[in-house]
Design a protein around this nucleic acid. Structure first.
Lengths: 195, 195
DNA sequence: GTCTATATGCTGATAGAC
DNA sequence: GTCTATCAGCATATAGAC
């Protein structure tokens, strides 16, 4: 017998994660109740526990999945030849990836303090590994004397903050197209790095 | 009769605000209960309502006070002669002011969504007014042809994000002194602005 | 797989004693 | 000015019916 596609268990699980993501991004993890998530999905609160052992795990999995997707998407990007090329690829990738996932990004930044210590350690190390990708580009550029940033670590932090900041103000259909924003930021990043 | 200095009402009010600030910064507004705040102050929960009409007002006043202090501190800064000077003064001021108040800054960024709409509007307009200070520096620099940023609005947002980002990683007694951090960021800001 | 019902405990806020 | 006691409601999570 073929298994019926769209059985409830196939559908409801993802719906729970999507509802939690939407609500956590909007109201914050601590302010959202399991009842609200259930109502959004269209089930009763008790049914949620078929798909997650508890509320904390729901949050942790959202953040972990987001960061793992970030890593695999970055791994799939074409690598430029020179550090300058790689810096441009990174800047554009970062803006694009983050603008495509405003909810995930918001949660990943705002809800760190609501992770239990063990979960926090996992998320933090994924985040650091991503930062290290940019840092190695800047470091290579320094070695090749293409960049003149006075401090690689600070340039890394400054550039990440600058790029991620786009999410706080960019609105689709606004004054500038995405491509235009990417270009302008590439330019600012390049100069901040001392290219 | 001279009023007794240090009467409870003179002391407890500020203590309530300080405790709320500490706890909101650490655990988040939604996750902190009035009982926790009371315990931190050393009174019972009911006593808090002598100093604030409700929890929301406590949050709003913390944020409003912070932003008003930001404005008056900026107004008291020496104004540089040229746009380049003013940009340097702004960058150093921003880093210094924000590093001095990590809790206030954290709350001002993280708890915006927990403000009721009316309160949000007040805070938002104070924040925008501060951004406009930087924007006018960049705009003057553009007119004077000292800066070559391709877009003034985007440069404003990028620079603010970059500077505020220092709060996320800087630790007193770390690898770099505050002054060194300020210098390096000034340099990156200047170049991002196209000076 | 989902429901209803429930355990157990905490929430913001108020009333009234002292 | 602070306390104790309390209201009405909501929290997470589980048990057992269907």
């Amino acid at each position: 017998m073929a298994r019926k596609t769209g059985s409830h268990s196939d559908i409801t699980g993802p719906l729970v994660r999507e509802a939690a993501q939407r609500l956590f991004a909007r109201y914050g993890y601590a302010a959202v109740s399991m009842r609200q998530i259930a109502a959004e999905v269209g089930v009763q609160a008790g049914a949620l526990y078929l798909y997650t052992p508890d509320k904390q795990t729901l949050l942790f999995n959202l953040m972990k999945t987001h960061l793992e997707e970030l890593h695999s998407a970055w791994a799939a990007e074409p690598k430029g030849e020179t550090p300058q090329d790689r810096l441009e690829v990174f800047s554009r990738f970062h803006i694009r990836f983050h603008l495509d996932r405003p909810e995930e990004v918001f949660i990943a930044y705002m809800e760190l303090r609501n992770l239990e210590p063990e979960n926090f350690a996992v998320i933090e190390s994924l985040r650091r590994a991503y930062e290290a990708e940019l840092e190695s580009i800047l470091s290579d550029g320094h070695t090749a004397e293409e960049f003149r940033a006075p401090d690689i670590r600070l340039a890394t932090m400054a550039i990440i903050a600058m790029l991620t900041g786009v999410n706080t103000w960019y609105r689709e259909g606004g004054r500038l197209s995405r491509d235009r924003v990417e270009r302008i930021y590439c330019d600012m990043v390049r100069r901040a790095a001392g290219a």
